[in-house]
Design a protein around this nucleic acid. Sequence first.
DNA 1: CGGCAGGTTGACTTTCATCAAGGAGTGTGG
DNA 2: CCACACTCCTTGATGAAAGTCAACCTGCCG
Lengths: 239, 239
Amino acid sequence: MNMVVSQPNSCADCPIRHSAVCSKCEPDELVQLEQIKYYRTYAAGQTVFFSGDSLEFVASIVSGVSSLTRTMPDGRVQMVGLLLPGDFMGRPNRETIECDVMAETEVKLCCFRRKPFEAMLEATPHLGQRLLQMTLDELDAAREWMLVLGRKTAREKIASLLYMIAVRMQSLNPNGAAKAEFTLPITRETMANYLGLTIETVSRQMSALRKEGLIAFQDRRDITVPDLEALKAETGEDA
Amino acid sequence: MNMVVSQPNSCADCPIRHSAVCSKCEPDELVQLEQIKYYRTYAAGQTVFFSGDSLEFVASIVSGVSSLTRTMPDGRVQMVGLLLPGDFMGRPNRETIECDVMAETEVKLCCFRRKPFEAMLEATPHLGQRLLQMTLDELDAAREWMLVLGRKTAREKIASLLYMIAVRMQSLNPNGAAKAEFTLPITRETMANYLGLTIETVSRQMSALRKEGLIAFQDRRDITVPDLEALKAETGEDA
DNA sequence: CGGCAGGTTGACTTTCATCAAGGAGTGTGG
DNA sequence: CCACACTCCTTGATGAAAGTCAACCTGCCG
């Protein structure tokens, strides 16, 4: 595994200092965390954990995008989580992980060996409180996604995914523009796995949305959404 | 709302004392909890919370089964959670709830007003630690379910649901019998909403599984599974 | 007895998956 | 520099699975 261990780095200038699991920690608690943390980088396409692996560390995503997937014995794959910067990877108090974790883009992790992290979780309420918040948010997101998987049409699924990504990117430049441009961090296959569709259906629906002017793209990664509200209307969730 | 407030009850002889959010609490912490708790009972079919309601209390399920559902503007419904005795209902640090919560059977809740509960969560690490564990477990279950919704056939979905319920019931009488009998706590419509299917498809697949001898039933609630392993083989997850 | 909710079954339709062919961009080696 | 192989994507033709519409059954309750 050609993963790279980077040089040490300070929490003070960490880009996810205020959103990650450590965001409620006091300065003295950060000092403790600094002592057990280390960085790792994974190239796009590399696997971080295989399902069933023993869970040696937990981590915050510093940069990049990772996916969680589950695979059936006959090869069917369903993505069950998409981890963005600030998100937490791994399970305290669990020996193994039951998903494959993959780097969709180059990913930089801030890792903590699991045992010391669990000990700190017991001793440092701020850490556990933040992790609880984050886990509850993820649970809400997972439930939202169950609606998409269980009840939406292919077209609505695509619109939902694009809308979600557009809004997340939008939140970075917060002037409420009606328009959005972004680079899809994932392939058609990854989209299909996320949405419970085949890549052919993804491709067809992307073409259909383009034909109708709801989205635009030249190379197949850089997407323009001329009218976010119009796209939202296609998600099936508008009133 | 004809909900009933029951007479006070002691934690000491509570049936979910060792599985609920309070299960790690020390005696003195239980005393605190006793001061802010109260019981409510809902009849089958009653709504506990409507989506968007302000969240006045959180609760443990003492007995019965509740469902969490999300509804689209055009009426499509997806169940996103099934709460059994011991499970926790509600979100600390959130003003409103974004699901409908319904009593599928008669349900007895042990309620805590949200604000005092949040205060205790800050002050009592045992409470937060247990809630974190439970939330992580629910997240895993939600992800498992995303695989069912996204990638399984109707037949596999039905088999998965029946197998899950059979195993949960089985865990109550722990001699590893190959056979299982149980009463479905939910209607065909609820099954359909859980599985992302129509009730007609649920009905057809139930009939098909019965024709093949994988399950048996006379009245449509009391199910017999003569061979749990055979049923498991139909879930698509066997190796 | 009639009405009603929940469930089953059949005929038909729609949606999406499957199978298959081929295009566009990229990297490699002759 | 061009041929090629390869990955990722697109598009078309066809088929299978599940949804829709409709009729009817069953048990229950007033």
